[in-house]
């Protein structure tokens, strides 16, 4: 068994920090948070260095720590409570469940998938995603950024499938509305 000490960490930082940051930014869109998560990863690696047996490569080991840290981040975000006002569907629907007229989905003129390549459109999507309540943002980010299946998200966040489905529904209603307001009404 190889005895590892601080110089190795320094070498790892030099070798893997950029790659880890790139991965973190792919999974968490906020740069500052992604940097913190990578920093935490190296901190945890330093503390747990004695548990690293060299059975996997340092790179694999660091990336697995990073993955834990990313899920941890979303887990803490998902613990935030959502205000009753955000949860209410009355913004979108009448008491009987029909669309409120101003919130009725209109046909989007330019709804072809190529719009998804437009950096400005992506920015609108990103901002709309950020505007969601923390808990919903965490669920949606885990689903799409981390590419997790429903049951994995439920397990990671300790919520039921019905609960997740409701969160997705409310998030999508808000996202759709936000995109329509900020993209289609402005163009």
């Amino acid at each position: 068994m190889k005895i590892l000490d601080t110089p190795d960490i320094a070498k790892w930082v030099d070798e893997y920090a950029a790659g880890l940051l790139k991965r973190a930014m792919f999974k968490i869109s906020d740069t500052e948070i992604a940097k913190d998560v990578v920093q935490d990863t190296f901190l945890a690696a330093t503390e747990k260095l004695h548990t690293f047996k060299g059975e996997s490569s340092p790179k694999t080991w660091l990336y697995s720590i990073l993955n834990f840290k990313i899920i941890d981040y979303y887990r803490s975000k998902a613990r935030q409570t959502v205000s009753p006002a955000s949860q209410s569907l009355l913004k979108f629907f009448t008491e009987t469940g029909e669309w409120n007229d101003p919130k009725k989905p209109r046909a989007w003129e330019d709804d072809d998938s190529h719009i998804l390549d437009d950096p400005d459109f992506r920015l609108v999507m990103r901002n709309c995603l950020e505007a969601l309540p923390e808990k919903w943002n965490a669920c949606i980010s885990m689903k799409y950024y981390l590419d997790k299946k429903g049951d994995e998200i439920c397990q990671d966040l300790g919520i039921t499938p019905t609960n997740l489905w409701q969160i997705i529904h409310r998030s999508k209603l808000n996202l759709r509305d936000c995109i329509e307001t900020n993209w289609y009404n402005d163009h």
């Binding site: 869109s29 989007w108 709804d111 998938s113 719009i115 998804l116 459109f121 992506r122 999507m125 990103r126 995603l129 949606i140 689903k143 799409y144 950024y145 590419d147 999508k172 996202l175 759709r176 995109i179």
Partner: peptide, 9 residues
């Protein structure tokens, strides 16, 4: 469309 967009965001 939003689903597709989020997957590639």
């Amino acid at each position: 469309l939003i689903d597709k967009g989020l997957h590639n965001l």
